[in-house]
Design a protein around this nucleic acid. Structure first.
Lengths: 192, 192
DNA sequence: TTATCGACCAAAAAACTAAATTGGTCGAAA
DNA sequence: TTTCGACCAATTTAGTTTTTTGGTCGATAA
């Protein structure tokens, strides 16, 4: 009762490492149990299924990133600064979750609907975050955006593009490069 | 001798359709031969391998697209127009090659090195095309770009991002949307 | 009551094997 | 010069058996 939450925490803590290494599919309940020095069936006292454990781990991980981003944004004042903070923090955070991220990617083929669901939910969050920043910029008379929704999606798509590009190890991006690109986003390439 | 080239053309013409439907792996030489009303071994009189046939088909298809793009660009005068023509023509062309494109994607898992090689070569072409347009814009005093190479790659990556987004059927993009995005690329989102 | 466990099961996955296909070769014959 | 069928080694596929895995349940400590 009083220990349940604590044990749950322990489980997801250990499960996280194993999932990060082997991904969802290749991680077995037996492994997690052994690492916990418990019997496999004991895990089911705390979680209903392997899926539930994984989902919990995912959500927790997402929370950490979300908070980092939230904090980074709130520390900036200008919409430009916020957008920059968002992009940079997101990039760094994902890099830190690289193991996890690649594990997810590996099992992209088998499309577990609960993972798909998670992705969708997270995508929607990101859309909200970006569009909020953009909207604030427009409201404060700093940004001039014709189609806010389309621009939001565009930024997200581009961001995802860079993401997979970077994680594919095609090019090593520095912070300076990101700034360069943000500069294009902010001011365009046409001379004024 | 005089007919060899003609027969070769016939083969790749027929092979293209089959490859487009079933992809490289699932297409058999027997099928191609049957569609040609020839024996399988006859194909080897014209091509050294299945790979060579596929490669030829690929290259031909790329040539068609390349010419379309080249023509579209040359008909425009301003760098903005050229870039717009490039993006639009490329998008349309790839949409037309959708079957082919998805066949390629399906076999992305098995990574045939000759396909990888082709992709790389084509990527380099695209980089050249884009950077040429950008450079012209800069030289004519129309564009103002800090890091030309990085901007080129950025545009290409973003383009690829949209590509897979569109082909995944996530959103239906109109020409107007593209124009909207190009507008962001040209003028940025910061109010002037 | 709370927490843990081993025995157990159905279903899925992995390992194995036999049979069929496939890309490619070669010499013969139109 | 062009086409073909017979043939081969190697890969794929289909079918089967064995093992593993997620999950359940009742017993049993604490």
């Amino acid at each position: 009762m009083i220990n349940v939450e604590k044990t749950k925490e322990e489980i997801i803590e250990i499960a996280r490492d194993i999932f990060a290494r082997f991904g969802f599919k290749k991680t077995t309940m037996e492994e997690i149990a052994k690492a916990m020095r418990k019997a496999k069936s004991s895990l089911y006292y705390y979680f209903q299924s392997k899926e539930e454990i994984f989902q919990t781990v995912l959500e927790q991980e997402a929370n950490v990133l979300r908070e980092k981003i939230e904090k980074a944004i709130s520390q900036e004042d200008t919409p430009q600064g916020k957008l920059r903070a968002y992009v940079l923090t997101r990039m760094r955070g994902l890099k830190q979750l690289a193991n996890f991220y690649s594990a997810l990617k590996d099992e992209y083929l088998e499309n577990y609907k609960f993972i798909e669901k998670f992705r969708k939910k997270y995508d929607e969050e990101e859309v909200k975050t970006i569009s909020k920043i953009l909207k604030e910029g427009v409201d404060r008379g700093i940004f001039d955006i014709k189609d806010l929704e389309m621009t939001t999606i565009a930024i997200l798509i581009a961001l995802k593009g860079f993401e997979s590009w970077v994680f594919q190890g095609n090019t090593k991006w520095t912070e300076k490069d990101i700034d360069n690109l943000l500069d294009v986003l902010f001011h365009g390439i046409v001379k004024k």
